[in-house]
């Protein structure tokens, strides 16, 4: 695997730190005019999601991590594992609930998502920014309500619960922002 110097640390670069794959978030060059140069680096541990700060002497090196984001189609849940497939190669991967995490709230069969692979094993799953899901359960709305006002909870077919405007009905298809978990709009089928 490639070796990277602190000078090459750019946001997004994947490196190995304390045996865990990590991504660089920010890299600041710190140098007293007459002193040692350091790099203060903000790093996300890709396994735990935790963000830490670590200082290196400028010019120090770390090993790159074989981490890639691959677009895959979500196939099905066998109870223990969720299965994903790369469209071009039909290669399949499985990931347990620990890895899928909250992404499971937004994964519908056949939908596309991003699977992060570390040494060809799934490390994390990120749903598409916007997904279309149907409402399986919500209180009936009152006629005349508009999009303003409070809204009501609605349960979606993946199990997620989002707040929707009162006029949105059970059985309707809606668009949701998975990063905020917020309702965006209704979708015409």
């Amino acid at each position: 695997m490639a070796i990277f110097s602190t000078n090459e640390f750019k946001a997004g670069l994947k490196i190995m730190l304390d045996n865990d794959p990590c991504a660089i978030i920010e890299n600041e060059f710190v140098k007293p005019g007459k002193g040692q140069a350091f790099n203060r680096v903000k790093i996300r541990n890709l396994k735990t999601g935790r963000v830490i700060e670590r200082t290196f002497k400028s010019g120090d090196t770390l090993e790159g991590a074989d981490v890639v984001d691959v677009e895959m189609q979500y196939l099905y849940n066998d109870g223990e594992y969720r299965h994903f497939m790369v469209q071009d190669t039909f290669e399949q991967y499985q990931a347990d609930s620990k890895i899928v995490g909250d992404a499971s709230l937004w994964l519908k069969d056949q939908d596309f998502c991003t699977v992060t692979l570390w040494n060809d094993v799934p490390l994390a799953v990120t749903p598409a920014n916007f997904v279309e899901l149907s409402i399986v359960e919500t209180d009936p709305g009152v006629r005349g309500d508009t999009s303003g006002g409070g809204g009501k909870p609605a349960k979606l077919d993946t199990g997620a619960v989002v707040r929707v405007p009162l006029f949105v009905q059970q059985g309707e298809l809606i668009k949701v922002d998975t990063r905020t978990g917020e309702y965006i709009s209704r979708v015409k089928e």
Partner: peptide, 17 residues
């Protein structure tokens, strides 16, 4: 591990951080 026994390095590190 970065500064070891080097006083000047420790001072640079702690002062700048």
């Amino acid at each position: 591990s970065l500064c070891g026994n080097d006083q000047a390095l420790w001072l640079d590190f702690i002062f700048s951080h």
